[in-house]
Nucleic acid binder design. Structure first.
Length: 286
DNA sequence: AAGCGCAACAACCGCCGCTTC
DNA sequence: AGAAGCGGCGGTTGTTGCGCT
């Protein structure tokens, strides 16, 4: 199954590494128009790439908010522990690592963490205090061997912190075993997010194309819309089923039913966190 | 300085699931 | 109901950079 747009221009589709010029074109286009239908992006942006390639490039490299720094010990522990629970569900794991992409997490695992297995086995308590099996017994197996027992989710959060998430209706286990596997979060379309950050210091986005895409939250202030969303989310404990679709500033705002983030997950977020997590082309409120 | 090997990262490929018609 | 389009995901491969000899 192919993309009509791309099939039309298949012969012209470039492959391989992206040039700075291509990056700039893609970035300019998406920042201005949003991506919309990915298959039409290359055509509209004047790129000889297919839509998938553009999407990947945006998600993994160009989008604002990406961390380009080395993984911290906390992030490392998060990866190890979630990998224990979920296996090679990189995108799911990446959801809990703000500013990290699934590709980045995957690469980090394959090139670095895998090799640290002996260390993990030697000091399992460092990463997996309550686990009785090797945290890496499922390597190479996309299905996690070990299903978490109740309340034994142990990352950098403590049992007491888990208990503090009692306002969340689902238990940690249900979060994991649930097909959704994570609490539903408000969804903001890219265009909305973009307009929300119009108040922010956009110099932090590397709009000059210097190659460093670093978001510096300390330099930015959320717009009123963003703060409003934050307030809504902060007060929506039990406001299940809230659905608000409206037209705002020419863009459609969509909110999914909101549930509070479990305390133990929020503890993973650093103080410098913006309050939003990029999930590919969407932002999720934490 | 050049060649080689390895590690890290970037990107592609193919499959799958969801949505739309 | 089924086919087609599309986005997303995970595995794999290609490329680059760096250290060592």
């Amino acid at each position: 199954m192919g993309c009509k747009m791309c099939e039309k221009t298949k012969a012209k589709c470039r492959k391989g590494l992206w040039s700075p010029n291509e990056d700039q074109k893609l970035k300019d286009y998406i920042l201005k128009h949003g991506h919309g239908c990915w298959s039409s992006v290359p055509l509209k942006a004047g790129l000889q790439r297919n839509g998938k390639s553009c999407r990947l490039r945006w998600i993994n490299y160009l989008r604002p908010g990406l961390k380009r720094s080395a993984f911290t010990a906390e992030e490392e522990a998060t990866i190890v522990n979630f990998h224990t629970m979920w296996g090679n569900k990189w995108s799911r794991i990446a959801m809990y690592l703000p500013g990290r992409t699934d590709n980045e997490v995957k690469n980090y695992w394959n090139t670095y963490l895998k090799k640290k297995l002996p260390e993990f086995d030697e000091y399992p308590s460092k990463y997996q205090p309550s686990s009785t099996s090797s945290p890496h017994s499922d390597i190479g197996n996309s299905k996690p061997k070990q299903q978490p027992e109740e309340n034994n989710i142990q990352i950098s959060f403590s049992e007491s912190s888990i208990s503090q998430e009692s306002s969340y209706s689902a238990s940690p286990q249900s979060i994991i075993n649930n097909s959704n596997d994570r609490p539903p979060l408000p969804k903001v379309l890219f265009a909305d997010w973009l307009s929300m950050f119009s108040y922010s210091d956009q110099s932090s986005w590397d709009l000059d194309g210097s190659g460093t895409t670093t978001y510096r939250p300390e330099l930015s202030f959320p717009s009123p819309e963003l703060r409003q969303l934050e307030m809504v989310s902060a007060n929506t404990t039990g406001v299940h089923g809230m659905e608000d679709s409206s037209i705002y500033g020419g863009y459609q705002l969509q909110f999914e039913p909101v549930e509070p983030i479990p305390y133990y997950l929020s503890s993973l977020i650093s103080e410098a966190d913006t309050g939003f997590e990029l999930n590919h082309d969407l932002f999720f409120y934490r």
